[in-house]
Design a protein around this nucleic acid. Structure first.
Lengths: 213, 213
DNA sequence: CACAAGGTTGACTGACCAGTCAATCCCCCA
DNA sequence: TGGGGGATTGACTGGTCAGTCAACCTTGTG
């Protein structure tokens, strides 16, 4: 028999997994604690044995995953490859995360990362860490002369991460197709947009800035 | 005398304005209908005289403003100016909207546009219209040979709007400074990032795509 | 085998809040 | 000046849920 009885503390894991499904399906606010318990085939009260509150369940989900992301970005930054490839690897990791577990990423993005008013508030610091790491990559690329200085590193990080999140959001809410090919194409397009820009590489002086209407 | 008594249907306006303040301060979910009424100096029940529900208040706030945005984008697209300038004008309008009424934009972005799980769901269609208009500008620029074809118009629209929203979000949650100069600089940097890209304009062939790690 | 410690159960409580409604007020018109 | 109708009021209702808790079960240990 597959798993006749989850031995010991597996229940905690089961609750976490169930929470991902439940949160993804109904959204954090609309999801009742009893939904999580039902989904996990576990009594209502057990959720409170392992977690202090409904919030803590979401916190755990987010932090576990986000810490992995931060570690991966650091690791990528440590590699000796050109900045474009670093950004490509980061976009790749995030997109693969979504491909591997769409529900978890949906919850993290929709309920934490994009929900800066409710939950994101609590985790602003963590989120900012990711921006900072990306900004650092850009800054070093500028120092090396690979990236130009028209855009500040902080801003570039914002735009880069923003583009990724926007694409994932598009997938999450089915505004975008998501065939298998789509995933790799997205990685490439994100990097190309942010690094290469939309305009054809003419002799265009890169400073069409301050000329407002 | 200034306004000793709001004559007639001004109350509706007062409720709407109060809702902006209340939603911005506490977030839509945490904000009670009584908060709106208090903020508007109006009885609880009056909110329900003018609106069917708490949701309808937010809907009204969003739709009124979003329709203006759609009209403005169309208008800009109609002008005979290069695509980069069109995008600059669009970014400019959105950023000016924020400068003019930060609370309203905060509510629209945080509670609708970025809240695709709860409210955004209802307004996905409207939001998509904006993407479509932007994508159209990009598509025409590609046909004219001004923009390259490495990135699909739909994708470019996503990245462009995503960058703007990300910057506003940064301001909203004080992850970014927002001096007066910051606003104009942001317009320029968004356009420069998306149109010009981060890389220095070397002879770099614009197709470092499908080579994943 | 008996007992302790922690895992597991689910009915229950307390708080909160959207939305209702009957009563009151105010303005306009005849 | 009388009265009709929309504007305004706020106490009240109904339903929902997060979190508690006392009882029950399972497992390991002496």
């Amino acid at each position: 028999m597959a798993a006749p009885r989850a031995s010991g503390g597996d229940k905690r894991r089961m609750i976490l997994d169930a929470a991902v499904v439940a949160f993804a399906k109904r959204g954090f606010h609309a999801c009742r604690v009893s939904d999580i318990a039902d989904e996990a085939n576990v009594a209502y009260g057990l959720v409170y044995h392992y977690f202090r509150s409904k919030d803590e369940v979401l916190d755990t989900l987010f932090l576990d995953r986000w810490n992995v992301l931060l570690a991966v970005i650091s690791e990528i930054d440590g590699q000796d490859i050109p900045p474009r490839e670093k950004l490509h690897a980061i976009a790749g990791f995030i997109i693969e995360s979504y491909r591997y577990d769409p529900d978890l990423m949906k919850v993290i993005i929709v309920e934490v990362t994009r929900a800066a008013n409710s939950f994101g508030r609590t985790h602003l610091g963590k989120i900012r860490e990711a921006y900072a790491l990306i900004a650092d990559i850009v800054a070093k690329a500028q120092d090396a002369g690979t990236f130009k200085r028209d855009v500040t590193p902080e801003f570039a990080a914002l735009a880069f991460y923003g583009a990724i999140e926007q694409v994932l959001t598009g997938w999450i809410f089915e505004m975008l197709p998501k065939s298998e090919a789509e995933f790799d194409q997205a990685k490439a397009m994100i990097v190309e947009t942010i690094c290469g820009g939309l305009e054809v590489a003419s002799g265009h002086s890169a400073s069409a800035s301050a000329r407002t209407v």
